[in-house]
Design a protein around this nucleic acid. Structure first.
Lengths: 116, 116
DNA sequence: CCGTCAAATCGTCAACATGCGATAAGCGAC
DNA sequence: GTCGCTTATCGCATGTTGACGATTTGACGG
């Protein structure tokens, strides 16, 4: 652990109470949405990134690069995939970018998988 | 619904009580497992197939082909992907093959996704 | 303004995914 | 055996993914 409590521009892990997602979990649109999300998760490096972000042990892109045995450009691409799927958000923090999971998308993914 | 209650060589939808999965939901192996499963789910046609099988509206390969706007060979390939990931099982039933979801793998997938 | 550091983007390449038609293989019925 | 039906596999074309190094962009600090 880097330090006891590190302030960061990202949202707190525990969301402050959000409205439930009313979109259907079945049907063609839901199928495509699930496929899109699952595809984004469908790579070990991206799973690892999601876990890192969920645990908040890393948030800044560079830290993630250090954790993974991949080049910086490759990590950036994986982050872009996750961002494209809406699973992750990147907040610009000076010269750095702080990535964090998008809790709503994660809940959505869990709901869709749960509907299987 | 095709008929009231259709007998099939597949297992009942409600599993007869299985031991819980003791494998960890984190770590490198779990990450790779999740990535593998998610990758298999990461295609709309395969999501649709999983839903069809879960609802038991189709079980035989040919029925699935009829439901999807895809060629028979393509559906067969998707089924093979799902089978390779362990999400689906194919029981030979005379000249046909009856596919059904593998409840254990589905539970495993849900557990892994839930661990995110 | 410039350096400097972080991150994204570009260019390239090998590997894989996806689709199809065509063909092979397996199983029952006859 | 052989026919017919069902499913799997093959071969191929096309597009996407994943990896890397190299380069560009962006944001401070001086």
């Amino acid at each position: 652990m880097p330090s006891a409590l590190r302030k960061s521009p990202c949202e707190p892990v525990t969301a402050p109470r959000e409205a439930p997602d009313l979109r259907p979990v079945e049907g063609k649109a839901a199928d495509e949405e699930l496929a899109l999300l699952a595809k984004a998760v469908g790579h070990p490096a991206r799973v690892q990134i999601l876990r890192l972000l969920a645990r908040r042990e890393s948030c800044v892109c560079g830290d993630i690069v250090d954790e993974l045995p991949l080049a910086q450009s490759t990590v950036s691409q994986h982050l872009e995939v996750l961002r494209g799927a809406g699973l992750v958000r990147g907040d610009i923090d000076g010269p750095r970018v702080c990535y964090c999971v998008e809790p709503r998308a994660m809940r959505r993914l869990k709901a869709l998988v749960g509907s299987l």
